[in-house]
Simulated scan of single mutants.
Amino acid sequence: MTPRLLLAGFGSFPAAPLNPSAAVIATLARESWAPPGAQVDYLTLPVQWQGATETILRQLQTSPADGVLVVGVAVEAEAFRVETLGRNCASPERPDQAGRVWGSPLIADAGEDVIAASAPCQAMASALETEGLPVDLSEDAGDYLCNFTLYRLLHAKAAARVGFLHVPQARECAEAAAFDLAQIRQAVTSAAGAFCAELSRPVAEPHRA
C-alpha cells in the first residue's frame, strides 16, 4: 500500500509573525508535493495549547496516516533540528496565540517523563546533511507548543511514526536570518522524503521513561 504522511506546520505567534514552517507547508500543499511512491496530507496548526494537537487528531480520524511530521520554527536556531524526544514539560505561564496559558508544568499528569520520537530521526538528519544543510539531532524541543505537540502525539500514539523538525527563521521573515525559504523548503522536503521512505518498514516501540 502507498504510505501516507501527514505534514503539519504552525501558524504565526508573537515571536514569529510570519512563521516559515507555515509558509513552506502552504506552498507544498498548493503544489500537491509528495515524495515518489507516497501520499502527503497537509495542515497548518494554530499556536494554541488547546488546538494544535486536536487539529491533528481530528485530521487523522478523517484520513488516517502512517506517519506524522510536524514542522516548527526555532527562532534563534542556527541549524535545522530533528527532535528525538518529547518531554513531559510545558511553560505554565507562557501564553499561546490566543492569549491562554497551559497552567501546569506538566503536559500529562500521569504521563511518562520522556518519550522517544518514533520517526526515522537519523535518516531525516542524514537526508539534510546530504543536501549540505546544517542539522542536529536534538534531545530538547523546548517547553512551548513544539515540544507540547510532539509529546502529546507520542503519548496518544497518534500514528505509528511521529516526528518533529525544527527549522530556523527565514530571511523573508527576519533580515538577519541565515536561511531563505527555498532552503527551508529543501530541508522540509528532504526530511519528509526520508520519513516516507521508512514508512513501510517496521517500527520499534518508543522508549518510555
Rank of each mutant, 00 (worst) to 15 (best):
V47Y: 00
Q48E: 14
W49Q: 00
A52Y: 07
T53D: 03
E54V: 07
E54G: 10
E54K: 12
I56F: 08
I56R: 03
I56M: 00
L57V: 09
R58P: 01
R58V: 11
Q59K: 15
Q59R: 15
L60V: 09
L60Q: 07
Q61M: 09
Q61P: 01
Q61H: 13
S63M: 09
P64W: 03
A65M: 03
D66Y: 01
D66G: 13
G67H: 02
G67L: 01
L69T: 00
V71Y: 06
V73I: 11
A74F: 04
A77V: 04
A77L: 07
E78V: 06
E78S: 15
A79W: 14
A79K: 12
F80R: 01
F80M: 03
E83K: 04
T84S: 14
G86R: 04
G86H: 02
G86E: 06
S91Y: 11
S91Q: 14
S91R: 13
P92N: 13
P92S: 13
E93C: 12
R94W: 10
P95D: 11
D96E: 10
A98P: 01
A98L: 08
A98W: 05
G99E: 01
R100M: 11
V101N: 10
W102T: 01
W102A: 05
G103W: 07
G103D: 12
G103M: 05
L106G: 06
I107H: 10
I107E: 04
A108N: 13
D109A: 15
D109M: 14
A110D: 15
G111R: 08
G111C: 12
G111A: 13
G111S: 12
G111N: 09
G111V: 06
E112V: 12
D113A: 15
D113E: 15
I115M: 06
A116H: 10
A116C: 13
A116K: 03
A117G: 10
A117D: 05
A119N: 05
P120L: 07
P120K: 02
P120Y: 04
C121H: 04
Q122S: 12
A123G: 09
M124S: 11
M124F: 04
M124I: 01
A125E: 03
A125C: 05
A125V: 00
S126E: 14
A127G: 08
A127R: 08
A127P: 06
A127L: 04
A127T: 05
E129G: 11
E129A: 13
G132D: 03
G132H: 03
L133F: 08
L133S: 10
L133Q: 05
L133T: 00
V135A: 12
V135G: 10
V135S: 06
D136F: 14
L137A: 02
L137K: 01
S138K: 12
S138C: 15
E139Q: 15
D140A: 11
A141M: 04
G142V: 06
Y144A: 05
Y144M: 08
L145D: 04
L145M: 13
L145E: 08
N147I: 06
F148I: 03
F148N: 02
L150K: 08
Y151Q: 09
R152I: 00
